[in-house]
């Protein structure tokens, strides 16, 4: 069962043709990794999936992005889409608020005020993000006091708290040290049971470790996609082979 179906997607930033005729199915409750050299359009594709590109001027999008069979660009309710398709950014970006308020933010934005509901959701989300044990005694202290890795897990918790179906991650570990990275990867292994995950990564090793499916991009084109195993061991395209073997990129 596919969560997303991207069909003939073209995206322009002004005159820059950033995505060219992309066709990509994204299976449900699997981890799909987007790889490719810098500037090839990975982040751009990721951001079309929850319409974050809407925030940028002069973006034109052609083609279909279907979520559970419905075109997300036909539906006007972008807020509902983003509650269903959460996002974790490259650089941890907690709000300048307490840990608790960060995790409760999405719920409060939906108008949920019930203290009990909020408390429960915050705890569950922090547990799912493997952060609860480290912060349970200081929920009301500022999120900026956490380490980089903890902040990133807080951002994951904040996303989990709105109970999305899909979590998009744009190089979530690129600013973290190996230990913090390892923690997040472990966490993703848990998350894959409940969520559909799409992750952009520059690390071949990471893509191999954590993903079920891999899609390789090259200058705005989707060159090849398939089971991670196959893409890494038996790539069909010359460029994919070069990239996964580290010949360039």
């Amino acid at each position: 069962m596919n969560k997303f179906d991207v069909k003939e997607l073209d995206l322009h930033y002004g005159d820059t043709h950033a995505l060219k005729g992309i066709n990509l199915p994204i299976p449900e409750k699997k981890v799909t990794a987007l790889i490719g050299p810098s500037g090839c359009g990975k982040s751009t594709l990721l951001r079309t999936l929850n319409r974050m590109n809407d925030l940028i001027e002069n973006v034109t999008i052609k083609g279909d992005v279907k979520l559970e069979g419905k075109d997300i660009y036909q539906d006007r309710n972008v807020a509902a889409l983003r509650m269903k398709v959460g996002m974790v950014f490259q650089k941890a970006n907690p709000f300048p608020m307490s840990i608790y308020e960060n995790v409760a933010y999405g719920l409060k934005a939906q108008g949920i005020r019930n203290k009990k509901v909020l408390d429960e959701t915050v705890e569950t989300a922090l547990r799912s993000a493997a952060l609860w044990d480290e912060v349970s005694d200081r929920l009301n202290s500022p999120a900026f006091g956490l380490s980089g890795g903890q902040q990133q897990r807080l951002c994951i918790a904040r996303t989990i708290a709105i109970q999305p179906d899909v979590i998009l991650m744009d190089e979530p570990t690129s600013a973290l040290d190996p230990i913090a990275t390892h923690k997040i990867e472990e966490l993703m292994d848990e998350l894959r049971k409940k969520f559909t995950i799409v992750i952009v990564t520059h690390s071949m090793a990471q893509a191999k470790r954590i993903s079920d499916k891999t899609a390789f991009f090259w200058m705005g084109e989707l060159v090849e996609h398939g089971d991670t195993e196959q893409v890494f061991t038996a790539p069909v395209d010359e460029r994919t082979r070069g990239y996964v073997n580290g010949d360039f990129g």
């Binding site: 983003r82 996002m87 970006n93 907690p94 709000f95 300048p96 999405g106 996303t159």
Partner: peptide, 27 residues
Amino acid sequence: VPQSYREASYGLGSSRIYTIWRVILPS
């Protein structure tokens, strides 16, 4: 105000008014 605050807030499905009120104005 860092653009990342806006992205984070909109990314969680919150409205513009809520984002302004909770994040942008305080910062």
